[in-house]
Amino acid sequence: MIKMEVTRFRPGEDDAPIVQSYEVPLRKEWAVLDGLNYIKDQLDGTLSYRWSCRMGICGSCGMTVNGKPQLSCATFLTDYAPGPVRVEPLRNFPVIRDLVVDISDFMTKLPKVKPWLIHDGEVPEDEFLQTPREMDEYKKYSMCINCMLCYSACPVYALEPEFLGPAAIALGQRYNLDSRDDGALERRDVLASAAGAWACTFVGECSTACPKGVDPAGAIQRYKLTAAVSALKDFLLPRGARR
């Protein structure tokens, strides 16, 4: 058995968060999520948390496990043996209940970076040609599962809720760097704003926390470079030549 210490809280109903302990079987195959499911099924049906795919791809099950943001379906109890395993909600988000956090801030910010393909010219009848090398330019930024671990790890987001944040900027860059896309200019106002890439002080915690190798910190750094160059171009070139 292993002890799981889980944060319980219903804002508006409970005075303050409390920690509740449960004993769950320690099995080799069990993820932290399996432990929570055991609690819910066998011990206490009132525990609330999100999960779905249990294979690290839907992005639902982010939690703080022993102080670090993790996907609870891809983090194993044995890694924390003999315990206890401390499970808290993701940090930097308002709590809805127990381990469920409110991510509506991200959901409102995401459309602002226009995370869709913007193509100026004609759309071909067949496919756009895109070589594997061209795809490599943006591929890793397209791997984001919106799990919010990076927001939870980001010290800037903790202090400045206006900050677009790592995943949203990486997703904007994902399209900027796609050879089929012409939307960089349309995304610039948002990405290069004070709440955009420039707010990042390059701590890099986001890339450490990311379970999918997206490297949002790298995306942000790279954007700052392009933004600096294009600002210079704007200054030097006549209007019509800007792109």
């Binding site: 869709w116 393909l117 193509h119 759309v123 496919e127 040609l129 070589t131 591929k139 399209y175 896309d181």
Partner: peptide, 19 residues
């Protein structure tokens, strides 16, 4: 599937850039 390609889906490619 082409429509999705036009919307940005990163379909794996052959070396010449085709699907």
């Amino acid at each position: 599937l082409l429509r999705l390609e036009h919307q940005g889906c990163p379909w794996s490619r052959k070396p010449d850039g085709r699907i």
